[in-house]
Design a protein around this nucleic acid. Structure first.
Lengths: 213, 213
DNA sequence: ATTAATTTAAAACACTCGTTTAAATTAAAC
DNA sequence: GTTTAATTTAAACGAGTGTTTTAAATTAAT
């Protein structure tokens, strides 16, 4: 009786781990189904195709994270004073870390999936995210722009994409970087430590005055 | 008579474009050889394997860029005053742009390849780069560290990788971003303009004081 | 208890992949 | 000009991919 949705969940759980670790195209359905201990054909039965499985894996996180992030940012703006850039970025940390309650290593997996998705796929995931979660993204962009009014709109466009690159690249290779950092400096960082490291970097970059030339 | 090294070059030229556009594992040898108009088996004949072809593609750029970058940075340190972070990053701009003289779109292709290499492969490229060009990387890292002595070594490790992410992601999607910027803000940037935009962002992020907590 | 719908299972399909083989061709050396 | 070496070619190999099919088993509904 539990078998109905159990198979679906087993597939999603196994898939997200492997996708995050090895990337989407490097992870075969056979590897997923053997880890999940389900039949190969059940992926196509429950999800239709590998592409839709990838979207389902991401949606399971985005459906939780995006509303939580929006709420956190809107709550920040109920305060009388203008929120700083660091405050805005930091407001996303709790929604991110709460994903660890959703599933073990949820935060790490989600961020790595996001990074992989943006780098690997040529568009179908980017399209999926912007069309399904565009309003939440708007909330974030407007919030950042308001807190750095000295940055022209066009310049902010570029800097937010620099920021996207910073976070996405870092998360996609977070495991590898952590291994190096551990070997080289004896540092043992969890995902939260890396997030807290990257926030000041991004906030400083986004708000640095434009060169007068 | 020109056929000898011609085939090798045709393969490299076709491969680097495709690798930069679609990634390494997404690019088949059959696609490369058909674009290069050479026989499929000639890849294995001239390079041994796909893995070694990837390394050869990258080496062709690194052999030019790395010494040029090292020289530029060392020249900077002959001046009596300590070079600023922006000066150090800017010193890399010319060696980077000079790659456009090497091959059309050389700068963009090189940066995209670098990013793909760091994200995709689990280690063999990272190993290849650090063992073959480690001295040049050291020159750069030491130079940056000296100009931001308030940043601990381990923290600098992370920030330099944030920086790598910023530049690599930006360059990978520079064409698309430029199109949007042109349509949205009437801006028409070339690759150099984008590089000049990203330098203040990265310099600010790398040198921002570490949170005392 | 019987029927109907859902879910699982095993096998095959139709590709694509990197690599290898062996013959044909071209270039170089003597 | 003949022999030797280097290069190019076409074809096949073996392994891996996502997907589909067909049948069996399980579950739910009548």
């Amino acid at each position: 009786m539990a078998s109905r949705s159990d198979t679906k969940t087993r597939i999603l759980d196994a898939a997200e781990k492997l996708f995050a670790e090895r990337g989407f195209s490097e992870t075969s359905l056979r590897l997923i189904t053997s880890k999940a201990e389900v039949n190969l054909a059940s992926v196509n039965y429950h999800f239709g195709s590998k592409k839709e499985l990838i979207r389902a894996v991401l949606a399971r996180y985005l459906d939780v994270f995006m509303p939580a992030a929006s709420t956190a940012i809107k709550r920040l703006h109920t305060a009388p004073s203008q929120a700083s850039l660091e405050e805005i970025f930091s407001a996303l940390v709790d929604p991110l870390l709460d994903l660890n309650d959703l599933r073990t290593e949820g935060t790490t997996i989600f961020l790595q999936l996001l990074g992989r998705g943006y780098i690997e796929s040529q568009g179908h995931l980017r399209w999926f995210i912007t069309t399904h979660y565009g309003q939440h993204l708007d909330t974030f962009v407007k919030s950042v722009s308001a807190s750095a009014p000295h940055i022209p709109q066009a310049e902010m466009f570029w800097r937010l994409h620099f920021t996207l690159g910073t976070i996405v690249f870092t998360m996609a290779s977070a495991d590898a970087l952590n291994d190096i950092a551990a070997a080289e400096f004896g540092e043992h960082n969890d995902i939260e430590a890396v997030i807290r490291k990257v926030i000041p970097y991004m906030a400083a970059g986004v708000s640095v005055p434009v060169a007068s030339k």
